[in-house]
Nucleic acid binder design. Structure first.
Lengths: 213, 213
DNA sequence: GTTATTTTCTAATGTTCATTAGATTATTGG
DNA sequence: CCAATAATCTAATGAACATTAGAAAATAAC
């Protein structure tokens, strides 16, 4: 047994995959254990050999989802040379976040899209995990700011929320094929750092501001 | 009867408000007619005098949600002088979008957050309405581009999806009090048009690019 | 104020679903 | 091969819920 993996482990994973996929598509309440079981080639009752309740299954899916994206973004920073330019660090983080979300994404997507609709008790337990992930992003942006790479007239907290919003929302519209995830990450960073305004527009804006002042 | 408003109309509105609020919080499947009825000071059975089914109620909530934000953004453009600078047009649109979402937002928020989890048939009927709204934003950005206000190395479609993502996601985190919605709209536009990178960072980035090339 | 109409309530009905208990089948260790 | 354990299945239970039908209450018309 080179790879320690009992039959139970295999079934468990199959169930979790099926659950993540179904929760993501239909939401928590609308997903029946029958659907999950069918997608995992089982009968509904058999799920209880592996999980004590629908809620426990949900919670494990959510945990996997947040952990994966957290770990991916964290590793993207650890794998970076200490003297990497701030721009590259941010780009690596955006890339890792998007890749986790869009490529192997049922768990993370499920976490994002059904979060507001799960039982209160479970949601409460998820909040600290989300906060920890949020803090990771805060550190990444704060480091860039200390390195002098960010303007000082933008609110870092709002930047973070808006950026994570733009990234997380991609699960609602991204379809593979057209644009690669890496290209998308590049694009996001370009927009984020340099803006989408033409140079003339920037001057125009500045002029407007003076006019008002 | 200056304001034509029968008792029926009043109840109907009360039910719709309650439904929007509850759908938004709990999701579609997890919301029971009992909850909606209680929030509207009624018994569950009484809802059927006004609506034929839970689905019909849902669909009306969704319609109101998309219509409100669509109309708000549309009016923001119509109320603008023909020679208004592109930056101001975009800012007005962002402001209108955010205000609708966050201020009187149960309907629009419900539409956004439960969309993926509603019955297939209803979702199909919502899609064209979403497309129409998306097209409105496409026109706004395309107009700015024709006016030479946008860089030509960004993909307008992706800009739109990322911007709408950042805006829509705000329903998940925005709490009134701290920052005003108008200030937030300004901030979004600043970031969007000018970017968050410091000037040195921009130069640094450009240098990196040359180094690679 | 009495009647007709509108609106709401009460009390079923039937369905769907999570969960359970016990039977059945597969897998593993000797 | 044979037991012992693990994994899955089958069928039943009970609760929650959308929906309905008919009674009751409120409102409007005259």
């Amino acid at each position: 047994m080179a790879i320690e993996q009992s039959k139970s482990d295999i079934s468990r994973t199959r169930i979790l995959d099926a659950a993540a996929k179904t929760f993501r598509q239909k939401g928590y309440a609308a997903t029946t254990l029958n659907e999950i079981a069918k997608a995992a080639d089982m009968q509904a009752g058999s799920l209880y050999y592996h999980f004590n309740s629908k809620d426990e299954l949900l919670e494990e899916v959510l945990d996997i989802g947040i952990n994966r994206v957290h770990e991916a973004v964290e590793e993207s920073q650890e794998n970076m040379p200490a003297d990497a330019p701030p721009y590259e660090r941010i780009r690596a983080a955006v890339d890792a976040h998007l890749t986790t979300l869009l490529k192997h994404g049922d768990y993370t997507s499920a976490n994002i899209s059904i979060f507001t609709q799960i039982p209160e008790e479970i949601r409460q337990r998820q909040i600290p995990k989300r906060d920890a992930f949020s803090a990771l992003w805060r550190r990444i942006l704060s480091r860039a700011q200390k390195a002098g790479a960010l303007r000082d007239d933008v609110d870092p907290g709002m930047v973070r929320m808006l950026l994570l919003g733009a990234l997380n929302w991609s699960v609602e519209w991204y379809k593979p094929g057209k644009t690669s995830i890496h290209a998308m990450a590049d694009h996001v960073c370009l927009m984020l750092l340099e803006g989408i305004g033409a140079d003339e527009a920037r001057r125009g804006t500045a002029a407007d501001k003076e006019k008002v002042a």
